[in-house]
Amino acid sequence: MGIPGTWRLRNQRLALIGEVCHTCGKKIFPPRDVCPDCAREAQHAFRFSGRGEIYSFTTVFNPPAGFEEYAPYTVALVKLEEGPIVTAQLTDVEPDQVAIGQPVEMVTRKLQDESRAGVISYGYKFRPRMSAT
């Protein structure tokens, strides 16, 4: 993803800002402008807490182009406490220490260093929850 894309997604990547549907109350991440439940417009920004739990996970040993230097890394589906599931890498934890149901929290980390385009993209990853809740 180049410079415009990285800039465009800064609110989602860095602050986990999604949307809330003012018709039915559903919290939405990633933002999609139309509520997936009631199909009404839902463009009101909503900032997620960043707290959730592991829904599923796997460790990638054969990465796609652009991720070679990071492999192996663990990717999870994280169920946020507000409802949505997000796909994200786990950090600060060994793969054999991960379990379904484990509480996690969002942190900001480097996602990819695309040196050819001069862009270092940062965004959300999740780690075992450390903060008081």
Binding site: M1, G5, L9, Q12, P30, Y55, S56, F57, T58, V60, N62, P63, P64, F67, Y70, Y73, V75, A76, L77, V86, T87, A88, Q89, I100, L111, Q112, S121, G123
Partner: peptide, 26 residues
């Protein structure tokens, strides 16, 4: 898969199926 919200996190196609399979087994 979704370039902005799946691939940007380094997931592969096998990886997506692995996420499903682990959850199914669980």
């Amino acid at each position: 898969a979704d370039a902005e919200y799946e691939l940007a996190h380094g997931i592969t196609f096998v990886g997506l199926n692995a996420l499903l399979m682990r959850r199914y087994m669980h």
